[in-house]
Every structure is written in structure tokens, then in C-alpha cells.
């Protein structure tokens, strides 16, 4: 479904250029859920933005269902962003946010589709004419997910969808995403720094550091804490909480 080969992305020019992604390759099967984990600056979100078509300035190959990510249609691929406080238009009602993609693509039956979309993400009809400032963070993220699903895409790209939310709300959103994935056979890529979230949501994952994929493994390997690379082992240990001895042994991987 998704195939990425030797993807290279850099920003800036000349001596000040930054190589954010340095030759990344992976593939995701139809209906599979793939995770990308890494620390800030590892290039994980940059890969996702390229796949979403938000950044078309890259080298290598990136295709979604045999169509290059530079030209694919928004009807096939949609994205949910990290910060639900920033990704919704503050002066558009939920109704307008959800019906806009339908109008742009000339899809009729707007009224019932919006109603159904709200019900699908667990929001009642009462939310339809509210503004984002009248919603909690979890409710906003539900609206963002509903918006992404309005065009019934086959691929959903998720960039840290729960890291701005409280843990109890995170559980609700993760449950929702798992249900929607099963109901619609969605292919998903989930980018997160949280290993437990990726383990819960994905079948396979790639670990990124400094623009490279350090290793790729299935979730069972991650759950058994048996990664191959030292970098991933350190990430695993660090995510288990504070330990004086562990903190003293931290090393930087370049």
C-alpha cells in the first residue's frame, strides 16, 4: 500500500542545509498499522509530512497505492495532527469544518454525512454547531479525526495524535482509532515518541534517529524488550521511568 524507498529530505541550502531525512526505506501493507518512533529531530514527522503531500520537495520514492506522494489525492490520504488546539480553525464551527472537504470535492448528502461522522467519533449531534473553544482537547481531537475521515480515505497518517492530551483522554482516543481502523480497514502510520502507545496501536514499527531508520521490528519484539540496536535499548530503558544508574549511563548516538 505504502512504499518508501531511499527517501531523502533536506531543508535550506549550501552550508546551512539540514539533512532531516537521510535515505529512509520501508513499506506498509494494505490494512497494516505501522509505527515510527524516535526522539525530537529524528525526522519522523518529516517523513509523514512528505507522505501526506504537505512537503513535495524530496528525493527518492514515496508511493501510496502506486501513486507518488507528490501527486496523490486528498481523498486517498488524510492526516491528524498533534495539537488539536492548533489544527482546527478557531472561527469555524464543527459543522463547517466537517462539511468543507465534502463541498470542495463535490460530494452531496452533506447533512447526513456530517451527522454520521460525528456519531462515528462518539460526539453527539449537540456538538455540531459549536466552535473549537467550546470543546475540550479530547473533543477537538475527535473532530480532527472526523474531518480526516470525511473523504473516506484508505490511509490515515497520525502525527502524535494523543501527546497533547491527558492519559484518560488518550485512552479514549486510542480506543476510537483502533475501532475505526477495524471498521474501515484503514492503513495507518502512527508517529509517536511513546513506545507504549505505538505498541498498543501498531503491528510493526521503525525506530528513527537523526534522519535514519535504526531498526525495524514487529511489536512482539518490542514487547519482549528484545531490540537489536543499542539505541533502541536505551530508548526502552529510558521510557521505563527514572533510575539514577540508568541516567548516568546515557550516551549520545550520532
Amino acid at each position: 500500500m505504502i512504499s518508501v524507498g531511499d527517501l531523502t529530505i533536506s531543508f535550506g541550502a549550501g552550508s546551512r542545509s539540514v539533512h532531516a531525512v537521510r535515505g529512509v526505506s520501508f513499506s506498509v501493507g494494505d490494512g497494516e498499522s505501522f509505527g515510527i518512533v524516535g526522539e525530537s529531530g529524528s525526522g519522523k514527522s518529516t517523513v509523514l509530512r512528505a507522505l501526506a503531500g504537505l512537503n513535495k520537495d524530496w528525493q527518492g520514492t514515496a508511493t501510496i497505492g502506486d501513486v507518488s506522494a507528490k501527486v496523490h489525492q486528498p481523498r486517498d490520504v488524510q492526516m491528524v495532527f498533534q495539537d488539536p488546539y492548533a489544527s482546527l480553525h478557531p472561527r469555524h464551527t464543527v459543522d463547517r469544518t466537517l462539511s468543507e472537504p465534502l463541498e470542495i470535492h463535490g460530494i452531496g448528502d452533506v447533512n447526513s454525512r456530517v451527522e454520521r461522522a460525528l456519531a462515528d467519533v462518539g460526539l453527539g449531534a449537540a456538538f455540531r454547531f459549536r466552535y473549537p473553544n467550546q470543546l475540550s482537547g479530547g473533543q477537538r481531537q475527535r473532530v480532527a479525526i472526523a474531518r480526516a475521515l470525511m473523504l473516506e480515505p484508505r490511509v490515515l497518517l497520525l502525527d502524535e495524535p494523543t501527546s497533547a492530551l491527558d492519559v484518560s483522554v488518550q485512552a479514549e482516543i486510542l480506543n476510537l482509532l483502533r475501532r475505526l481502523r477495524a471498521e474501515r480497514q484503514l492503513t495507518m502510520i502512527l508517529v509517536s515518541h511513546n513506545l507504549a502507545v505505538v505498541a498498543h496501536m501498531c503491528d510493526r514499527l521503525a525506530v528513527m534517529n537523526r534522519g535514519l531508520i535504526v531498526e525495524e521490528m514487529d511489536v512482539a519484539t518490542l514487547r519482549r524488550s528484545e531490540p537489536r540496536e543499542a539505541y533502541t535499548r536505551q530508548l526502552l530503558v529510558a521510557s521505563k521511568g527514572y533510575d539514577r544508574a540508568v541516567a548516568a549511563q546515557m550516551v549520545t548516538f550520532d
Binding site: V167, S168, A171, L174, R178, A196, H200, R223, S225, L236
Partner: peptide, 15 residues
Amino acid sequence: SLPRLGDQRAELATL
């Protein structure tokens, strides 16, 4: 409500 590496659950408990 926290997902954990150690245990596998289809559904996370909500509060």
C-alpha cells in the same frame, strides 16, 4: 488507562 509495553489489551480502560 495507560497503555503498557508489558501487557496487551484490545481496549484501554477509560476513566
